[in-house]
Design a binder for these strands. Sequence first.
DNA 1: CCGCTCTTTGAATCCGCATTCAGAACGAAA
DNA 2: TTTCGTTCTGAATGCGGATTCAAAGAGCGG
Lengths: 204, 204
Amino acid sequence: MQVARNKQRRTERRADLVDAARRAMLEHGSAVRLNQVAEVAGLTSGAVLYHYPDLQELLLEAHRAGMERFYDQRLRAVEGVTDPVRKLVMTITSGLPVDSEDEDVRLLCELGGAAGRNTVYAALLTALYDRQVSMYQVILEIGAAQGVFSLKDPSLTIGRNLVALEDAYGYRMMARHPSIDHAAASRLILDYARLATGHPLPAD
Amino acid sequence: MQVARNKQRRTERRADLVDAARRAMLEHGSAVRLNQVAEVAGLTSGAVLYHYPDLQELLLEAHRAGMERFYDQRLRAVEGVTDPVRKLVMTITSGLPVDSEDEDVRLLCELGGAAGRNTVYAALLTALYDRQVSMYQVILEIGAAQGVFSLKDPSLTIGRNLVALEDAYGYRMMARHPSIDHAAASRLILDYARLATGHPLPAD
DNA sequence: CCGCTCTTTGAATCCGCATTCAGAACGAAA
DNA sequence: TTTCGTTCTGAATGCGGATTCAAAGAGCGG
């Protein structure tokens, strides 16, 4: 079955290119050149075009991959944690870039800038936002049901505000705000979470 | 004194170009072409280069102008209002794009995407953020001094979170989130402001 | 109306990029 | 080793944008 093997190597190669495109966008922004992607991949532009005749499609895949990477990482960071308080705190922490060099978040910021003009990118980001809101809603509702949290607003409202704060502080950190680093941003968001849940949330 | 008149017209012409660049960026993003700027200005690329030999400098000025426009507009929206409650509510409202087509905010979003790679843009955005935070701090402190607000966190914390929420919902609106429009975003931010100020803030 | 300077044009030039493609290189099976 | 399909290269082509510049145009004082 050489046919199956070929098919597999083909998808592997395409995945390599998606990752190269992702890294190239980190360096050159959303308006990255085909040559720049090829250079990162260690290939010529022709080879890239052989696998992805349409560069736009490749960039879209790269953005999608970056989003999934970010989201999966968050899920993995809190998997197995059952205590709602710990889970909420850890989720907030995992939604912020680790530092101003964080690759995944930088890519999302690039995407955010382009989303104003590109409806496909806009749809991707909107979907990611809503998924993250749902993630928070589950945590909040479980905590409320257990009597740990006493929510001062609907879980949808709190979830939306929490994700919004994460996004905004992500941008601030990417822009290297001198006094807002990962710890400071965490504290700011936790201050809101405390008010909204009525729980003194240890900083951990 | 033809010398003085010349100088004035020269600066006027440069201001025209800055505005043309601003509008061109709205259409084509931060990576706008010289030709596109020239077209918006109703000139040829050579004429643009005559006034701004360096395109990067022109784009920087355009971004700076866009920021000032946005900030001045906010200040003007609340000037003359003395009641802290009304002032807070109006400030929150004025910080959000009016709709998903809002030019000033779209430009700021473009800028946000580029700030991850461009330190000058990053500095501009950071300065704008801090100015807006200060704006909120003044309102909050006055309201607290008058006994209208009972702040649940330091004014710096609340101000930072308020501006962060505005920024984030600005991005959401630019990405045309189906259920977050100007009214919904206002409500979400006001929900936080209520918790943080201990005041029932009428929606107005 | 003339002459001066500042401004703008339009053409020429150069450069970099995307795109195409013939053929080289590679790898697997026979 | 030969054959055959897949992958990749490197050169050719063509387009679009940046940049330069001589010359035309426009405004203004004399």
